[in-house]
C-alpha cells in the first residue's frame, strides 16, 4: 500500500495486472484516475466489459480524506476566527456609535432647552425693544418739537432784536431830526421837511413791522 497521496506522480512499474481499459481502438490506456492496485493472483482474462467495471475510480483513501478534512477544519477555524473578529469589531463600533448617539441626544436635549430659554428671552427682549423703540420715537419727536420751538423762539428773538435796533435807529433819527429842527436856521426848510418825511416813514415802517409781528403772534 502506498502512502503517497498522489499516486499519479510516482506510478509503479508497469505490471500486467494494471487495470486496462480497452478503448474502442483496442490500445491499452493508462488510467490516471486511480492508483494502481497490486494483485497477487494470476491474472485472469475477463471480458472487456468486466475490466471496465473494475477500473472505475476508486473512492479516496482515508489519509486523503483526513487531509482534506483537516484543511477544511483549518479553513473553518480561520473563517470562524475572522467572523468572530468581525463581530467583535462591529460590536465595538456599534457601542461607540451608540455612545456618541447618546451623547449627542443629551446635548441636543440640553441645547433644545437652551434654545427654548433663549426664545423666551428673545420674546421678552423683543417686547422691551418695541417699547424702547416707541419711547425713542416719542423722545425723538419731542426733541424735534423742542428744536422747532427753539428755532421759532430764536427766529422771534432775532426778529425782535432787529425790531429793537430799528426802533433805536428810529429814535436816533427822530432825535437827530429834532436837533436839526432846533437849529433850523442852519438848514433849508425843504431839507428839514424831507428829513422829517424820511424819519416818519422809517419809523412808521418799524411800527408797522411791530404791529404785523403782534398780529402774527395772535394768529398763531
Amino acid at each position: 500500500m502506498s502512502t503517497n497521496d498522489d499516486p499519479s506522480q510516482q506510478p509503479r512499474a508497469r505490471d500486467t495486472s494494471f487495470p486496462v481499459v480497452v478503448p474502442k481502438s483496442g490500445l491499452p490506456v493508462f488510467s490516471p484516475t486511480s492508483p494502481p492496485q497490486v494483485r497477487s493472483g494470476t491474472p485472469v482474462a475477463t471480458p472487456a466489459s468486466s475490466a471496465v467495471a473494475d477500473t472505475l475510480p476508486a473512492p479516496a483513501s482515508p489519509p486523503a480524506k483526513k487531509s482534506k478534512a483537516r484543511v477544511w477544519v483549518v479553513v473553518l477555524a480561520i473563517v470562524t476566527a475572522a467572523l468572530a473578529v468581525l463581530a467583535a469589531y462591529l460590536w465595538v463600533v456599534n457601542e461607540q456609535w451608540q455612545e456618541q448617539n447618546d451623547d449627542l441626544r443629551t446635548q441636543v436635549a440640553a441645547l433644545n432647552a437652551q434654545v427654548a430659554d433663549n426664545n423666551t428671552q428673545i420674546l421678552e427682549l423683543q417686547s422691551d425693544l418695541n417699547q424702547a423703540q416707541e419711547n425713542l420715537a416719542g423722545a425723538t419727536g419731542k426733541v424735534t418739537d423742542l428744536a422747532d420751538s427753539s428755532a421759532n423762539a430764536n427766529d422771534q428773538a432775532a426778529f425782535l432784536t432787529e425790531l429793537a435796533d430799528s426802533f433805536q435807529q428810529c429814535a436816533q433819527a427822530q432825535a437827530s431830526h429834532i436837533s436839526h429842527l432846533e437849529n433850523a436856521s442852519r438848514y433849508t426848510a425843504s431839507s428839514l421837511a424831507a428829513e422829517g418825511r424820511d424819519v416818519s416813514n422809517y419809523c412808521s415802517d418799524v411800527e408797522q413791522s411791530y404791529v404785523d409781528y403782534q398780529a402774527s403772534l395772535e394768529s398763531n
Binding site: 482534506k68 479553513v75 480561520i78 475572522a82 462591529l90 465595538v92 463600533v93 456609535w97
Partner: peptide, 26 residues
C-alpha cells in the same frame, strides 16, 4: 487541495476588500 487554497485566498481577498465597506468608528 489546490482548489481549496485558491478558494481560501479568494475568500480572504474578498474579505479584505469588504473591509472598506465596514462601518468606521465615530
Amino acid at each position: 487541495m489546490s482548489r481549496s487554497v485558491v478558494a481560501l485566498v479568494a475568500a480572504c481577498t474578498l474579505a479584505l476588500s469588504g473591509c472598506n465597506m465596514l462601518p468606521q468608528a465615530p
